[in-house]
């Protein structure tokens, strides 16, 4: 090098310089404000006429634990139905066959266009239209016996969910480079094989975050199932507080259970996202909780990059 460094920044050898990463003062101020707000809320709640021992007591009541269990099972069943329907109808909508894509479009139009509450009531009362169902000659049964509240709620929530998931899945499929389908076809795969082995696994990266969101939404929507007689946690809590009038206490108990369940679901989503990020660069991997904390407040340069 012929040019000399400017005199004002000479004097120290580059090897002796210490690099100080950018400090996040705004984040610290913001965090302090949030903590203050939380303290104020906690104080208000503790001064209100809430009987905390009652809350603690009802946290262990079996019907409520069963109730959150019912909500979780209903969520799992409805989401399973929704995912299967969502993937199938998304692939159908992308079909070149206008009848196939038209059927999928119609399904989405109907089930996304009406309130889920109304759909639940319709499923529950389906016996009014089809009093008996079955396969002629093989099996037949009364609709009322088959469509129990839980079954009706599973089908109703699942079909409604499928219509939303379908659009999410379709977006995910469209996000995958067309060259992937062609490369798969070029090694002799059929379109369906290519979809299953090549396109959908890549689409999962785009699909999982919103579907995770929808699982959590579903857990809360299951409370609507109480309208058709499913004993989930919120309806059980109401049964109890109608009798003992501990309204806030029981609602807080429900909130605690819901938050607990949602937290567990979020952990599941987190690891699912990491699984399907296989082969992508590490910066696209969601961070583990520790990495996240240190990247928010820390001065750890590796997490910053």
């Amino acid at each position: 090098m012929k040019t000399q460094p400017a005199p004002s920044i000479t004097g120290t050898a580059a090897a002796d310089l210490k690099i100080v990463p950018r400090r996040h003062i705004g984040r610290w101020i913001g965090a302090a404000a949030v903590v203050l707000l939380l303290v104020w809320l906690a104080v208000s709640f503790s001064r209100a006429k809430i009987n905390w021992p009652t809350v603690q007591e009802y946290l262990a009541v079996p019907v409520l634990i069963q109730g959150i269990g019912v909500a979780l099972i209903l969520t799992a069943v409805a989401m399973a139905i929704g995912l299967v329907l969502g993937v199938v109808t998304a692939v159908m909508r992308l079909s070149k066959n206008p009848v196939v894509s038209g059927v999928a479009w119609l399904y989405i139009w109907v089930f996304r266009g009406t309130p889920v509450y109304l759909q639940l009531l319709m499923w529950f009362n389906l016996a009014l239209i089809f009093p008996v169902i079955g396969i002629p000659g093989l099996y037949s049964g009364r609709m009322i016996d088959i469509l129990t509240p839980f079954v009706a709620a599973s089908i109703g929530l699942g079909l409604n969910q499928g219509a939303y998931t379908s659009e999410v899945v379709r977006g995910g499929i469209l996000s995958v480079d067309e060259g992937q389908l062609e490369a798969a076809q070029a090694v002799g795969m059929t379109r369906l094989q290519a979809m299953r082995r090549i396109v959908l696994p890549q689409a999962m990266r785009v699909i999982i975050p919103p579907v995770g969101n929808e699982v959590i939404g579903m857990l809360k929507t299951t409370s609507l199932a109480s309208a058709i007689g499913v004993s989930e946690i919120l309806s059980e809590a109401q049964h109890i507080y109608y009798v003992n009038n501990r309204i806030m206490e029981l609602l807080i108990v429900c909130a605690v259970w819901y938050l607990g369940a949602v937290s567990i679901l979020s952990i599941g989503q987190f690891y699912l996202e990491r699984f399907f990020a296989k082969g992508s660069s590490s910066r696209q991997l969601p961070m583990t909780p520790l990495q996240r904390l240190s990247s928010i407040f820390g001065t750890n340069r590796k997490a910053q990059s």
């Binding site: 480079d177 060259g179 992937q180 062609e182 490369a183 798969a184 070029a186 090694v187 002799g188 090549i198 696994p201 890549q202 399907f276 296989k278 082969g279 992508s280």
Partner: peptide, 15 residues
């Protein structure tokens, strides 16, 4: 199956 193809943008399966 008996006709291979190699693309300009490679199109390897990234996952």
């Amino acid at each position: 199956r008996s006709i291979g193809m190699v693309f300009q943008r490679f199109n390897l399966f990234p996952h």
